[in-house]
Design a protein around this nucleic acid. Structure first.
Lengths: 329, 329
DNA sequence: GACCGACCTGCACAACCGTGCACCCGCTAT
DNA sequence: ATAGCGGGTGCACGGTTGTGCAGGTCGGTC
């Protein structure tokens, strides 16, 4: 008689179980056993709406993981062409040609966020650039409980107007929270005024520690900047660069940047003048990272994307399908 | 102008794409980008109902894979107790205590079928017993495109009334189709009349080939039979055994069987008389298999389950939660 | 060339699900 | 004590999704 209340309920799903346990049970009943929410509500002795919320909770917190496998034999032809031509794995995000640039970014970011969970695991280090693309990704991350994971900021965010801490650290924090990871900030300006200051600072042990973490990351996540596009990236409008800097970039025939490091259409970057003052990791450091996930949305990014591919910065490319078609056209 | 019709559609999702490609696109838009079916229908230039069917197709054919991860720290206490006490990984299938035995079987089988896809991969061999449990599982398999996979029947199906070919081969065929695997039948009676015939047949090269495949399987899937339960298993009602056989089992204190091989409550089996005439693999052969998935539903199976656990036949146990609770009680 | 069957489509309807709202409970600061 | 607050619940409604049905298309057959 003492177990009477538990008698007709579920040991793991009963009213006394934790929210997570209930969500787990509901998810099992819904996704594995194909019950309706109504039926689940009866089994859990609660209302259908609570079950609906429980399932949302389960999805949002990563208890339920939905993957899409394209059967190998038919792996989207377009992706195959991209792989052959550029040597990267393309993750195409389908959408109509007439999608606006903001929608593209949002949709690509959502897909990228869900994909990232497959690449990032316990005891790994993830390096992130920041900018509108990575920021958009950060808003759609699916939590995954990892241990010993670390997230490190790849480039500084300070400029002449703000230290950029708030914006960049908000992004970092989202990643850290989603993966239960330790976050490593990088409190330096995006661009130094004097390259000598950068070199000096880089010799400081506190900075060396961060740089060392960057060097050993297994996954890097970044977008590409497009300095001369109609819709310039965050770096180009936030007061980071001076008119003379633009002239310098122009003179160097720069087509884009990754984490404040600039490159030309042919992928060269070492002798771009501005890079001496940039806070981001040298592209050779980036290239030593095992998995380098580049997220790109919108036609205006095409030239800088080409440059990034030419520079061999990318192993996995998350990209909207119309742009991918333009890339191989 | 010639590409006009394709201009406002999706290259991969347009009307000319294959059903699979369309389903893939729809799945991406639905599960990765959270669009409604209505919106997807617009992008794919089709009706909403077609999108609904496309998504069903994607789920049924394994294009979409839904997994449930219980966060390690909270991995159902009950499962932990089972692991500790019996050394097996328990996959608990939640359901109310008052669930009928047929519902239990159906629900456990559904979960088991979805789980199996995680264990069975290309170039592996899967051994299956047959019986009501495995049959139920076979009806819920989620397809997965493998190469070089093989499915082998573990025990014969013939009896004095039929060769059992139709029933058993239907089950086998379902597995073969779901995984694109080659199927290996085992056309022998479930029980021989004369153990000598079995020994003779086992020396035939055609039989040796099958036995050899069985010995090298990486995954085995089976239920447990319960000879003296209220709801006896297939083997015990299909005309396979004679009254004297039952007396023999009773005299040997048998509590159950796996693939026609009988064991006692303490897990012993070698000296059970009837086993000399059984077509199933010796339990030592079974125990050499890396992953041995046992599917059990319903209280009446408890004694035979205990025996199978005592015999160390199981590495992964798919079981309804009320039964699991009874097991550890 | 008419017929047939297998398959696909959109419609319409019913079933199902998400969410704003009012409410309740336990906690805390006043 | 009590008002306020954060978080959870069920109801009711409207949006979303599954599915039987009545076509339509295509390829094969007599």
């Amino acid at each position: 008689m003492s177990i009477d209340t538990a008698g007709s309920t579920l040991a793991l799903g009963g009213r006394s179980a934790s929210r997570t346990q209930q969500a787990l049970t509901a998810a099992h009943l819904y996704y594995m056993q194909d019950l309706t929410m109504e039926a689940i509500a009866r089994e859990l002795h609660t209302s259908r709406s609570s079950v609906s919320r429980l399932l949302s909770h389960a999805r949002e917190t990563g208890l339920v993981d939905i993957q899409i496998h394209s059967p190998v034999e038919s792996a989207a032809e377009l992706a195959a062409v991209v792989r052959e031509r550029h040597g990267v794995t393309a993750h195409l995000v389908p959408m109509p040609d007439h999608t606006s640039d903001v929608d593209r970014l949002e949709r690509v970011a959502m897909s990228a966020a869900r994909l990232l969970g497959r690449f990032f695991d316990s005891n790994m280090t993830l390096g992130i650039a920041w900018g509108s693309t990575v920021s958009a990704v950060s808003r759609h991350l699916v939590p995954k409980a990892l241990s010993g994971a670390e997230v490190v900021q790849l480039n500084g965010a300070g400029n002449t107007r703000t230290t950029g801490i708030i914006y960049a650290s908000e992004i970092l924090r989202r990643f850290g929270r989603a993966y239960g990871a330790h976050v490593q900030q990088f409190p330096v300006p995006a661009f130094f005024d004097d390259p000598e200051t950068k070199r000096a600072l880089w010799r400081e042990r506190s900075m060396k520690r961060v740089l060392d973490v960057q060097e050993h990351m297994q996954v890097a996540l970044f977008g590409v900047g497009s300095p001369f596009a109609e819709v310039p990236s965050h770096v180009y409008i936030g007061g980071y660069l001076e008119p003379e800097d633009y002239r310098s970039l122009s003179a160097d025939a720069v087509v884009g940047d990754v984490a404040t490091v600039f490159y030309r259409g042919d992928g060269s970057w070492r002798d771009v003048a501005l890079n001496a003052r940039a806070s981001g990791p040298g592209l050779d450091v980036l290239r030593r990272t095992a998995r380098r996930v580049c997220v790109v949305a919108g036609m205006s990014k095409l030239p800088s994307l080409r440059g990034a591919l030419a520079a061999g910065l990318v192993t996995d490319l998350v990209i909207d399908e119309p742009l991918a078609r333009a890339l191989v056209a």
